[in-house]
């Protein structure tokens, strides 16, 4: 059985191809203006990696993410909240709380022991604490995302960034730079600000261990350490790229749907 999950987010497209529940390949591509195009590019790349030449070879494909309704080749779509839950559970069985730091929103998802979603909270009305926020702050400091992570790790005395609004936070950073505050300390301040935002969101759904982070920003080790300090817990690390968890969840659900269909009398 070959299935795929395709997660079209605001910043990146992700695809995972599963063969009998093993990952055959995955792909991540930057977003194009049109989600359908992003989906096609991402999927083609994943198919090339898996040696799958035609979409006809798939038993089922699930789309997820903000562009989920625009993925022409998907058989069905499921929200990224459910997909992240299923994906995280697939690679970390003991997970109970998921933090998803995406390009345009921040989510906290609470799972029951059985993996069922109990509650979720989203910060979606502004850029505070999102991937976009981190990108903007790094740009103000003229750092790449990797450099921001390393700089934050070096900080001795974190600067305070009190504004959650990304526009105002950027002005605040300029003030800090003008005052001669070290870049490392500002970088740590940026991560502290996001960690604070995450703490609020996670507390809304209840911070049950084990807690994990998914999404592109989960690759920022400086941020992860800051969040661990703030939440006073050790976050779970995945053996696979945390950015593809949503697509993995979608693919896992696709496989389940195929099985359900084969069961006599099943839906």
């Amino acid at each position: 059985m070959i299935v795929a999950g395709c997660d079209i987010g605001s910043t990146a497209g992700k695809a995972v191809i599963l063969k009998d529940n093993e990952i055959l390949s995955c792909a991540i591509a930057s977003c194009k203006p049109r989600p359908a195009e992003t989906a096609e590019i991402t999927m083609r790349e994943a198919m090339a990696g898996a040696g799958v030449s035609s979409l006809n070879e798939f038993d089922w494909i699930i789309g997820t993410g903000y562009g989920r309704c625009k993925i022409d080749f998907a058989n069905d779509n499921i929200s990224e909240i459910t997909c992240h839950g299923v994906g995280a559970k697939a690679v970390c069985h003991s997970v109970r709380t998921i933090i998803d730091i995406g390009g345009q929103d921040l989510k906290a998802i609470a799972l029951g022991e059985n993996g069922k979603i109990l509650d979720f909270a989203m910060n979606d009305k502004c850029a505070a604490g999102t991937g976009k926020f981190i990108e903007n702050m790094a740009r103000s400091l003229e750092l790449t995302l990797e450099e921001l992570s390393i700089a934050s790790d070096r900080a001795k005395n974190a600067a305070t960034i009190s504004n959650q609004c990304s526009v105002f936070a950027e002005s605040e950073i300029i003030t800090l730079l003008n005052e001669g505050i070290e870049i490392d300390n500002i970088a740590k301040g940026v991560h502290n600000a996001i960690a604070g935002r995450i703490m609020t969101l996670v507390s809304k759904v209840g911070a049950r261990e084990e807690i994990c982070i998914v999404g592109g920003c989960a690759k920022n080790e400086g941020l992860i350490k800051t969040i661990e300090d703030r939440l006073k817990v050790k976050l779970a690390r995945f053996s696979i790229d945390p950015q593809i968890i949503g697509a993995l969840g979608a693919a896992t659900l696709a496989a389940r749907m195929v099985l359900k269909k084969n069961i006599p009398g099943g839906s």
Partner: peptide, 21 residues
């Protein structure tokens, strides 16, 4: 406005109501 986010929330809510997928 912000209908994309709204759809995601509602869809996810319905999925949680439906239980195991």
């Amino acid at each position: 406005g912000g209908t994309g986010q709204m759809k995601t929330r509602v869809q996810a809510f319905l999925e949680t109501l439906e239980g195991d997928l």
